[in-house]
Design a protein around this nucleic acid. Structure first.
Length: 242
DNA sequence: GTGAATGTTAACAG
DNA sequence: CCTGTTAACATTCA
């Protein structure tokens, strides 16, 4: 379900479990749950679409994939893949991929790539993209190593808003245009956050799931584009193919 | 009932 | 070894 901005919201909702000890950890995820019992959460972070409960020397990574969901101080009918209970409440994750990350998180994650992070670096994204000339724009915006936290909605909206055809080759996109796309990704991610909190996210879609172009009124094209083969809505009239 | 959905990875084929 | 395809994960909604 979630793209980066939704994880940003989730992190804030569970942040009051920071510095609390895990009273009980359970769930069907194939990891050693007992390892967390009695351990205090030293920090709660997010990187892209992943939520990270940090313990001393290791972290638990929660990824909700496509069908995942969560409940705080509440539970759903189905079994959780991970359930953490604290003195001040509990959190349950469903249909989520759960993994331990060993050691220093900085060895695993490049925070510059996280579109929601303070460390986000547009300059870094630009230099990485320039090293990938054959990549298509639609694949770049789905690449978690370059735009961590960007998903199919963000991809669609950013391409439309920056007027770039999804199947444009990165090498053919001029510098100013490519910088504009990177800037728009960061900007739209925070618009997404604001609209998601206000419950108006879908109302503000300009491309995703749209039948006609809001600029020229021509029908939007729908195609599973690029290596990622995810659904892309675009206007062949308003989005330039480089 | 069917199909698609804000996603990723392991296993397999060539 | 590298690249591409498929299945799997297990739920909700239209």
């Amino acid at each position: 379900m979630p793209e980066g901005p939704s994880l940003y919201i989730l992190r804030e909702k569970v942040l009051h479990f920071k510095d609390k000890k895990v009273i009980e950890a359970k769930g069907y995820a194939p990891i050693d749950m007992a390892r967390m019992d009695g351990q205090p959460i030293v920090d709660i972070r997010s990187w892209g679409k992943q939520l990270l409960f940090c313990f001393k020397g290791f972290a638990v990574r929660v990824h909700m994939m496509l069908f995942g969901s969560y409940r705080i101080d509440d539970h759903a009918k189905v079994n959780p893949s991970l359930s953490l209970r604290f003195e001040n409440g509990e959190v349950n994750f469903y249909v989520s991929s759960i993994k331990y990350i060993e050691g220093d998180l900085n060895d695993t994650y490049d925070w510059r790539a996280d579109i929601m992070a303070d460390e986000w670096s547009a300059r870094h994204a630009f230099s990485v993209l320039r090293e990938k000339p054959t990549m298509l724009a639609c694949d770049a915006l789905m690449d978690q190593k370059i735009f961590s936290g960007s998903g199919n909605i963000i991809k669609n909206e950013v391409l439309y808003r920056s007027r770039i055809h999804p199947e444009s080759r990165i090498s053919k996109i001029p510098d100013t245009k490519l910088r504009g796309m990177i800037r728009e990704t960061h900007k739209y991610a925070f618009d997404f956050l604001r609209w998601k909190e206000a419950g108006t996210l879908s109302k503000n879609w300009k491309a995703y799931e749209q039948k006609t172009c809001k600029r020229c009124d021509l029908p939007m094209k729908v195609k599973d584009t690029g290596k990622s083969r995810r659904r892309t809505y675009f206007c062949t009239n308003c989005q330039i193919k480089y």
